[in-house]
Nucleic acid binder design. Structure first.
Lengths: 344, 344
DNA sequence: GCTGTCTTTGACAACGTTGTCATATTCAGC
DNA sequence: GCTGAATATGACAACGTTGTCAAAGACAGC
């Protein structure tokens, strides 16, 4: 009989009060560590609590309390299994737990409809705040939620039609630097492989690519720009297709970690990994061990998570200053693949 | 003014009832989709709900309801940023969300004290169930929680002094097969690099190593067994140390993904990666792209997460059969590093 | 018209907790 | 002993919701 179905109902402060021979209110005071209870009585209450295995019921407590705080926050990630999201989640959870706040974490897997479902599910549980990496492109529906007390911080992607704090990454500038790095090594025919155009960050990275080319007087060649790449396999196929062009690129910019992995596979299977330069956005685990090791623009998930959490908790603590957008910079890590030179 | 501090209090069913000109109970019925409300009245209530931006308050609801279900479960992971944990979390969250259940996710980072804090925090929020990858070695403290209605499923590591469902991995057998694989390729001097001995799974893997050696009539040489390796850097150092022995090993078994990565770095820096065989426990992203590619015993996090979630929800649905232990098998993926032969 | 059944609706208490306020007790200062 | 203030304790209502039960209305069958 491993799971006695409600074998015992949970004891309440009423039970504790009866056993300790005192009133509800006194037990409440002890549980909340309020002053004004004699040592003797306080001890009696505590021993009753231990004997009964009483657990404070925070849902009832937060219902009754004035502020209505539940000491919980929601995190809506694009995918909690993505290493970047997982690292951000870890940092947020650590900071939250120091404040006695729990984190409800969900993935939306790029589904805008699911975004609204999750916001609703969290609102129904009255989370104090929300950290979200959105999939939709119109966040005006959040106006009501916020007006009713939910603080919201956007991460990785900016809010649209809605004014909120945001912690973003320098997508455009980072890509610009990455592509510029390739050009500094002599490349002119540089391909771009990017995620779904509908994702704002993907579009920003593409813009950075275009800017870098134009800044160097190179025209964008549509054949070399491949967007809406959904996964690693798709990236491999696109790479092989690029290599089969009459005039194949001499360098590739991969705008996302899964794309980078797919490109590496493609280059390898064509035996071109030592000939064609590659720079990727997002760091990739073990990429320093590949041959050549991969040059990337690395994000700093711990910094992103820390900024998001501290911003959210500042709002929860009553900070009413105007909304801010924080940009967490990316760092270029040169490892070899981005320093391959074009054939003369 | 981005965050009006409680600018508007949340409307309650009382407000909805007033606007729709009906009673609390009728609004409650509509909100819960109960039958027995006329179409006309139901419509009036729904339009009042929309107009006010009313959100059902699930904390109040579950407080009042008989069953006391909060439609939330807790997940206590060893580290949500670990790719394996994150993948398990993702699967659990997906299955939970199909049932309208949210997941509170926390990391305990191998801290037994934190384990109890988290269980308490979750108990105070009255989660319906708990999925845990424990760090402590005595779970008898959970007896009270379960008796009071919380279902508990262990994942990755078994419960101790406590009878509960568990979803485990064939650590010993997998390691046995992995080491056997190296022996089948002619190795006799095989080193073992493992995580903290205090972690049950790490100890199990070590036992599998010893068994495989003994089954083949090879004595365990203490010099070749390195345990309590805490991170990747530590594994690199241990590898270099092994290589400096008078009689270095001809093969290495790395008992965990971070250890594997550290070993690869060590072998590379010594220029021995093509000479010394390597098999790792846990798959490592991109390990197929290394030279040599790494042979591993891969876990199936989706299967683990699915089994854990379905087991937990079966309990929540009233399954009272005796506890079960599920073993999710590992798969050996041969890629090259494990098939290197020893020098003759 | 009367009875009985069924449908729709609402009044009220209760879930476990805490805020408010009143009462009882203690003790210092005179 | 009396007053006033401080301390300790408890009675009661309230948080937002739903379970229980009763009442009101509709309608069929006689």
């Amino acid at each position: 009989m491993p799971e006695p179905h409600n074998a015992l109902p949970r004891p309440t402060i009423r039970d504790v009060a009866a056993l300790a021979g005192t009133s509800l209110k006194t037990v409440s005071r002890v549980v909340n560590g309020e002053s004004g209870v004699s040592d003797e009585l306080s001890l009696r209450v505590r021993s009753a609590i231990d004997r009964l295995g009483y657990r404070h019921n925070l849902t009832a407590s937060s219902l009754r309390r004035g502020d209505g705080k539940t000491h919980s926050v929601g995190m809506i990630a694009s995918n909690v299994a993505n290493p970047l999201d997982a690292a951000i989640h870890h940092t947020i959870e650590e900071i939250a737990s120091r404040r006695g706040v729990v984190v409800l974490a969900s993935s939306l897997d790029e589904d805008p409809a699911r975004e609204r479902q999750l916001v609703e599910a969290f609102a129904e549980r009255r989370v104090d705040g929300l950290i979200m990496m959105p999939a939709s492109h119109d966040h005006s529906y959040l106006v009501d939620e916020r007006r009713m007390g939910m603080s919201i911080v956007f991460v990785d992607r900016p809010p649209a039609f809605f004014d909120a704090d945001a912690v973003l990454v320098d997508n455009r500038d980072g890509t610009n630097r990455g592509v510029g790095h390739l050009m500094a090594h002599g490349h002119r025919r540089i391909a771009f492989l990017g995620d779904r155009r509908s994702i704002v960050t993907a579009a920003e990275r593409c813009r950075g690519y275009v800017e870098a080319l134009e800044a160097n007087g190179v025209f964008v060649e549509p054949d070399l720009v491949r967007q809406d790449i959904l996964d690693s396999e798709h990236a491999t196929a696109a790479t092989l297709d690029l290599l089969s062009l009459d005039e194949p690129p001499t360098a590739i910019f991969a705008a996302q970690n899964l794309v980078t992995i797919g490109v590496v596979r493609g280059l390898r299977s064509a035996g071109k990994h030592h000939d064609i330069a590659l720079v990727g956005f997002d760091d990739v685990p073990m990429s320093d061990l590949l041959d050549p090791a991969i040059t990337v623009l690395a994000q700093d998930p711990a910094a992103i998570g820390r900024q998001a959490a501290t911003t959210l908790f500042a709002r929860l603590d009553g900070d009413r200053s105007s909304t801010q957008t924080y940009i967490v910079p990316t760092t270029m890590i040169t490892r070899g693949s981005g320093e391959i030179q074009p054939p003369r």
